[in-house]
Computed example of a mutant assay.
Amino acid sequence: MARAALKLTVRELGALSGVHAATVTRIENEQTKPHEASMRALADIFRELGLRFVAADDLAGPGVRFGPDYKETEKMEAVDYDQGVAESVVDWLEEGVSLTEVARKKDMPSRTTLYKWAREQKWFREEIGRIRTIGPKNI
């Protein structure tokens, strides 16, 4: 449900979260009991993309909603992919700066634009996934 709301493929979600695409599929199809680390990684990426998890109540079951920060970032203008900027983003991520913090920096594209680039640009998506998997550089 959350992946569909964000219009991400299984592979895109896997690359962004560091969770293997086959594991994402098994989790979605309830074919496995997921490891806590996998669920944490998926939840973190969903929250970073602006989703909020909602508990069941008297009116509806559990689900996801777009948070206020999602609406705000959606209003920002998208910027065409720029390899030089993408490499700078990767450098920041390797230093331990979150994608949200990078997007707040002067002259950087919005968070929504960066995630759009990650969906559309294989190199950028794989670099984000690599950094999420191994962590930032230790200096």
Rank of each mutant, 00 (worst) to 15 (best):
Y70A: 13
D58K: 09
E74K: 08
S38E: 00
A56H: 07
R104V: 02
E36R: 10
I139R: 01
V85P: 01
K106H: 08
T112F: 14
T133A: 06
L6Q: 11
T100V: 05
R3P: 02
L99G: 03
S17P: 03
A103E: 09
R132Q: 15
K122A: 15
M108V: 06
A41M: 08
G96A: 07
W123E: 11
S38H: 00
M1Q: 07
V64K: 00
S17E: 12
V24E: 04
E48S: 06
I131P: 01
R130N: 04
F46D: 07
L49E: 15
E36S: 09
E87F: 07
H35I: 04
G129V: 06
R40S: 02
G61C: 13
R40K: 09
R132H: 15
M1V: 10
R11H: 03
K75H: 06
L13V: 09
L59E: 13
A37V: 04
E94M: 13
V24S: 01
V90D: 02
R130E: 09
E30C: 00
M39N: 01
P68L: 14
R40P: 01
D57G: 04
S110W: 11
P109A: 15
Q31I: 03
R65K: 14
H20A: 06
A41F: 13
T112L: 06
S98R: 03
G129Y: 11
D91T: 05
N138S: 09
A2Q: 10
T23W: 02
L93T: 04
I134M: 05
A55D: 13
R119H: 07
R11A: 11
E48T: 09
G96N: 00
E101F: 02
A2G: 14
L8V: 07
H35M: 09
S17Y: 12
G84Y: 06
E77F: 07
V24D: 00
E12N: 03
Q121T: 11
D58A: 11
N138P: 01
G63P: 00
